[in-house]
């Protein structure tokens, strides 16, 4: 699963509101330890293998920072 799936998080667009982290059904996201250029703890992916591609993080992100890319041919 992990080789055809990619969750891109634009660290400078993320404001660190934590909506994606809270509403992910598989808890694959976490706040980062370092800051982005606007001083926010951006979200990062910690457990990509558990992702079920529900795209809830994409839909709920107020800052258009998360993109879930899945290559349909490989999976």
């Amino acid at each position: 699963m992990a080789d055809c799936l990619n969750i891109k998080i634009d660290r400078d667009l993320c404001t660190g509101c934590g909506i994606c982290i809270r509403f992910c059904p598989k808890d694959i996201l976490e706040p980062s330890e370092d800051l982005n250029q606007y001083g926010n703890y951006y979200a990062k992916v910690v457990d990509l293998d558990s992702c079920i591609v529900c795209r809830r993080c994409e839909l709920f992100c107020p800052d258009f920072a998360i993109t879930v890319e899945k290559e349909e041919e490989k999976c």
Partner: peptide
Amino acid sequence: ITTKDIRNKYVKNYPSAFCPGCGDGM
């Protein structure tokens, strides 16, 4: 449709002035 396509086609001037966690972006 991914967020990247939506962002390129419909959204400009981001990052926005909305507060973190604001519903307006949603």
